[in-house]
């Protein structure tokens, strides 16, 4: 297990319709603490499906996901919520909540049966907002924020959940360049400082190449390669990803 917080054994992910369809098969992946791992691949290649499966929101089609050695499917939902937190794209919300209320929803796994939070929980929620640089949003309505600001709030919500594993699906999709950089620097810092394993998916290879410690590449044939950034660059796996659009990275790495 080489100290991985999350690992998969022969995992297949896909759809559970009338027929089980596997998008990605035979995955043996390790998510290591204190590292920022980036999942890259073209749109529609199965990134989101993989992410939902790793977060325990969807059952694997085959194989297993384990967190600290325990099969995720057997972990009760309340306990799972203290192990993995997620940020999903699209800021899917409903309701008239203030930013701090959204972040406080991240403390629900720790709340009592009524969903009431202790002062301690509120403090943690406030700290998460501060960590993400969004303390100024307190008192503002989530619905009135821009997409980028909402994204920050949703990341703060996931941080408030205080899980060793944080998984983000396209966290930079709605952000401008500065905010993207800021978000990735922040995530990298948090991974290191709080010893979290952070996985984020992206199709923004420029950004990923700057910040990722580890890379999981899903190539155009849905083969998955994982390794450190150097390993990925040296393997040449990017040749068959993104329809070859990012080949120049291979040249860059050779030149340097």
């Amino acid at each position: 297990m080489n100290g991985a917080a999350l690992n998969t054994t022969d995992l297949s992910v896909g759809y559970h319709g009338r027929k089980r369809t596997a998008l990605l098969r035979g995955l043996n992946l390790n998510l290591r603490p204190r590292r920022l791992t980036c999942l890259i691949g073209q749109n529609g290649v199965g990134k989101s499906t993989l992410i939902r499966t790793l977060a325990g929101l969807q059952k694997p089609v085959g194989g297993a996901v384990s967190i600290h050695g325990a099969d995720l499917e057997l972990v009760p939902p309340a306990e799972r919520a203290r192990l993995v937190s997620i940020v999903l794209p699209g800021a899917d919300h409903y309701g008239n909540l203030k930013c701090e209320q959204i972040v406080q929803l991240g403390r629900l796994p720790y709340a009592n049966w009524l969903g009431q939070l202790s002062l301690h929980d509120r403090k943690i929620a406030a700290d998460s907002l501060e960590k993400i640089g969004a303390s100024a949003f307190v008192g503002r309505r989530f619905a009135e924020l821009s997409d980028g600001e909402r994204q920050k709030i949703l990341v703060a919500r996931a941080l408030a959940q205080q899980t060793p594993i944080l998984i983000l699906d396209e966290p930079t999709a709605f952000l401008d360049w500065t905010n993207r950089l800021e978000m990735l620097i922040l995530l990298k810092e948090i991974a290191f400082r709080e010893e979290k394993s952070i996985l984020l998916s992206s199709h923004d290879l420029d950004l990923v190449m700057r910040f990722a410690d580890d890379l999981w590449v899903i190539d155009d044939d849905r083969a998955v390669f994982s390794g450190t950034k150097t390993e990925v660059l040296e393997s040449g796996v990017l040749k068959n990803a993104f329809s070859g659009k990012y080949l120049r990275y291979l040249e860059d790495s050779r030149a340097s």
């Binding site: 325990g56 939902p77 309340a78 997620i86 929803l105 629900l108 796994p109």
Partner: peptide, 24 residues
């Protein structure tokens, strides 16, 4: 109905987010 307060709040963020905070 007091028991439904917590899940209803969690559902405000959508079913997947609700699941991720431990609500079935």
């Amino acid at each position: 109905s007091a028991l439904t307060i917590k899940p209803l709040n969690a559902l405000l963020l959508g079913e997947l987010h609700a699941r991720s905070v431990g609500i079935d």
